[in-house]
Design a protein around this nucleic acid. Structure first.
Lengths: 213, 213
DNA sequence: GTCCATATATCCGGAAGCGAGTAACCCATG
DNA sequence: CATGGGTTACTCGCTTCCGGATATATGGAC
């Protein structure tokens, strides 16, 4: 049997659900929705069943019963195996104990930001900042709601994380806007030149990099 | 022709490279490596050629020549089309102007953190914090190196972003460690109970959520 | 009693992703 | 001049992902 690759975090969420009690896939999905876990783990039905099959093939979960109630589609209830429990713990420990390189879309965008002219970048970043502020507000709202429902902080701790990271991004964006506006960025002259004249795009960076060798 | 889905940021990086000048895929890859862009955009050869094919099919790039030098494998040089240039700008504007929901692995881990017992979580978070500190140091080192090479700040601006975000995560982690150690988290009593006794795992959270309905 | 929207539960086929493999060249070393 | 390790430039085939499609049941409106 091929080694398990731990690619899709949805598989982790499935293990976590079955750790509480046996369930059928659709039930797992609705529970995750109910608990807002689908904001931390990408959930879509297409992937769900692929992931469940894969977990079964690796012996982490097993079909307990395939019951047909009324004329509804048959539903298969899965339970966690001992191997599955161990995989759950081990995976979770890894996830928490060791940072892994991620590739957020915005970072990709930032790394190519020179392709857009500075003045437009400022406009775009302002828009982003505004949307980030809205997001932070929304996160605060959700947090309050859950608090009023009497849920322990532990059950929505990921909201606190998300808020902290979003705040940091907002600050960085605001700071960059200021820097561009005040021409306080090294290389801004060339940046403006590329876009105002007929200099071949990106040539300066290319040359500088070539020198390196 | 199916609408282009902008799924893989590697496609954006390819467009950006061809925007400077026509190149063959392998050359694109090495240039991205040389400029450290492969830390912001996931690059592997398997995906590279899939992505290039897809871009060609959508008319964003076109094959200019397929030259065979010596007995080496044939290499196809691609150039950006007008549509491709527009797609590049439009995609980049979107990426910078609008935040999109992302699903970092750590957030998934955090959302399920209750499955691990509090004392072990502290150990794990300490380890993570240490590794994050090392990462921040490494980022600083790279930045200095590039600065000494005389490259304008604009060309490694993504390092500044990554540093800011990593710092924020580190602060959050450190703060959580302190909170757990001082029992300053709402719900920590239940958390400790689940793991010290025979209470059915996760039951409290489940019940509370069920109440909601 | 029947119509329609919504909920339940899963399946499917095409698209995308990815690591390992291939095959020729290049250059240094003994 | 044989050998072997690195570089160049892809190619292949297996997995995974994911957006609909499907098929039935339930419940309320009229």
């Amino acid at each position: 049997m091929a080694r398990y690759r731990r690619s899709n975090p949805l598989a982790l969420a499935v293990l976590a659900q079955l750790w509480e009690r046996p369930q059928h896939p659709y039930e797992v999905a609705t529970t995750l929705r109910e608990r807002h876990k689908d904001t931390s783990v990408k959930l879509n039905y297409g992937s769900l069943y692929t992931v469940v099959d894969s977990l079964e093939q690796h012996g982490f979960i097993e079909a307990l019963e395939a019951r047909r109630e009324g004329g509804r589609p048959e539903r298969t209830v899965y339970g966690l195996t001992e191997d599955g429990r161990e995989e759950l713990y081990s995976w979770l420990r890894d996830l928490i104990g060791q940072p892994v390189k991620e590739y957020p879309r915005f970072e990709a965008g930032v790394s190519l930001i020179g392709i857009i002219e500075p003045d437009e970048v400022v406009v775009l970043l302002r828009r982003r900042a505004e949307l980030l502020r809205q997001e932070i507000d929304a996160l605060g709202g959700t947090t309050e709601m859950l608090m009023e429902m009497g849920l322990p902080a532990l059950s929505w701790i990921e909201l606190s994380y998300r808020t902290a990271i979003t705040r940091a991004e907002l600050e960085w964006v605001e700071q960059l806007v200021t820097a561009i506006e005040n021409d306080a960025i090294d290389g801004i002259e060339q940046w403006r030149e590329w876009h105002s004249g007929d200099a071949p795009p990106g040539s300066i960076v290319s040359e500088k990099f070539s020198k390196k060798k």
